[in-house]
């Protein structure tokens, strides 16, 4: 089990780096979908005698992260008609280097943590930290709103992996509630994307600083 789990987590790490390394938004969304799907399978790998909670959690995660959220995002992307992150604040190459550095630091940090013996050899903690860091890099360095939503998704994936450590301790309802929140959040962001595009003719979130309470709000 441990071997398969670590392989899956290594793939998650690989997807992190790939997502940082591509500027095409549909590709990024596809990569994050794949990552979500992989993560959805993790509960089944961690708890070897399958319990109903893990199975339901796996199915729900696969459905939301693998199908529902990507389809919302792709639809939103089609409506706002952009395909690339043109000018990230940190270039593609430096952000990949940062991601790798983050992965290295996560590995280093996780080896210093006093984990219980069963978890010491697994990649769960470093993978979750590295994924969270990747999400942070996305959120801070990419300016297009779609990329930021993707960054948020990656961040959430990292937190989800961390949550798997304590699937027994954390109430099942919390995990399901999180998933529901996530779907609603992405759904709302899809709508917000449209509005940003309508208002500014661009998806650059830096323009949002120009927003103020104003009577001349475009009436479209």
């Amino acid at each position: 089990m441990q071997t398969y789990l670590n392989t899956f987590l290594a793939l998650v790490l690989l997807l992190n780096l790939l997502a940082l390394g591509t500027s095409r938004l549909p590709t990024v969304i596809r990569l994050v979908t794949l990552q979500g799907g992989l993560i959805g399978l993790l509960p089944l790998l961690i708890h070897s005698p399958w319990r109903p909670e893990s199975v339901v959690l796996a199915i729900a995660t696969l459905l939301t992260k693998g199908i529902l959220i990507p389809s919302i995002l792709i639809k939103a992307l089609r409506e706002v008609q952009i395909r690339r992150e043109i000018e990230p604040l940190i270039g593609i190459l430096p952000s990949m280097l940062l991601g790798a550095l983050g992965t290295g630091l996560a590995l280093l940090f996780a080896s210093l943590l006093p984990l219980i013996p069963g978890q010491a050899n697994s990649l769960l903690v470093p993978a979750s930290l590295a994924t969270v860091l990747t999400g942070c890099i996305f959120l801070t360095s990419r300016m297009k709103a779609v990329s930021q939503v993707v960054g948020y998704l990656i961040l959430e994936n990292g937190i989800f992996i961390f949550g798997l450590l304590m699937l027994e301790a954390m109430p099942f309802m919390v995990e399901m509630g999180l998933l529901l929140d996530l779907v609603v959040c992405i759904f709302v962001s899809g709508i917000i994307l449209n509005h940003i595009k309508d208002t500014f003719d661009s998806l650059d979130t830096r323009l949002l600083t120009a927003l103020k309470e104003d009577t001349s709000w475009p009436q479209k």
Binding site: L17, L18, L97, A100
Partner: peptide, 16 residues
């Protein structure tokens, strides 16, 4: 970019 990605993959493998 692609080649640096290859380096990074090998590097992360080494770290693991």
């Amino acid at each position: 970019n692609l080649l640096v990605a290859a380096c990074l993959l090998c590097g992360v493998g080494f770290l693991l």
